[in-house]
Design a binder for these strands. Structure first.
Length: 221
DNA sequence: ACCCAGGGTCATA
DNA sequence: TATGACCATGGG
């Protein structure tokens, strides 16, 4: 891994200059962010919004309502977000854990490591979902590694691409230091960039990260 | 018609 | 530990 703080910040600056502040998940409650994190698993966000709107319009966007709802009903409301049977189960698991643990105020008092482990103990919450929740709902300095991040860093020549999730996360956190604001914007910018430029020009031949790409791509591809 | 989208679990070797 | 099957809708 050729990750270092200066290089990572150079990439961040390029993205930030190009796209500006993203301030992800503004105005949403921590619980809504948790719901979104589960529903967006391998799913386009536009579909997630429809499912959340279904819950909202039926006043089911609360942990108690989701726990009380029949699973087949919940699945129908989640239909637009795909994998609706699976996600109905996962959402119920998460809500039961959330309520039994005492909700946001109580969970907020836990230490970052313990909170992350608790999230991961919920069936249906894997590392990426847990870290989305850690960063965006609980405001903890956890660097989210998703497919986009891995692909971008790989294309830039920083990593091989097959590193374990935890190795990558800890490496990034080590280089960047605990910085919630930075992690928040960085992840949002990577996703935004991936959905626009990288998707259209997969080899980064002419994107704003070209300098970094070319510098890091020697002997690769 | 095809590909992918802000993954995760479970069974198998 | 490491693959593969499976889950499913909607937009490009």
């Amino acid at each position: 891994m050729k990750l270092d703080r200066r290089t990572l910040l150079t990439v961040f600056d390029s993205l930030y200059t190009a796209y500006g502040l993203q301030h992800w998940w503004p105005g949403e409650t921590p619980f809504e962010i948790m719901v979104g994190a589960v529903l967006t698993q391998n799913t386009a966000w536009t579909n997630v919004e429809k499912a959340i709107a279904n819950l909202e319009s039926r006043s089911k966007l609360s942990p108690e309502a989701i726990i009380a709802a029949r699973k087949d009903h919940l699945a129908n409301w989640l239909r637009p977000s795909g994998y609706f049977n699976v996600k109905a189960e996962r959402l119920k698991n998460l809500c039961r854990w959330y309520v039994e643990a005492g909700g946001f105020s109580v969970l907020s008092q836990r230490q970052t490591g313990a909170l992350r482990e608790a999230l991961l103990s919920v069936s249906g919450v894997g590392p990426e979902t847990a870290d989305d929740i850690m960063l965006y709902a609980f405001q903890r300095p956890v660097f989210v590694i998703d497919a986009y991040t891995r692909r971008l860093f790989s294309r830039l020549g920083f990593i091989a691409g097959d590193e374990a999730y935890e190795d990558l996360r800890l490496a990034c956190e080590d280089r960047l230091g605990a910085d919630v604001r930075l992690y928040n914007e960085f992840h949002a910018l990577i996703v935004l960039h991936a959905r626009t430029v990288c998707r259209v020009r997969p080899r980064c031949d002419d994107c704003l990260l070209r300098e970094s790409c070319v510098a890091g791509r020697e002997g690769r591809d």
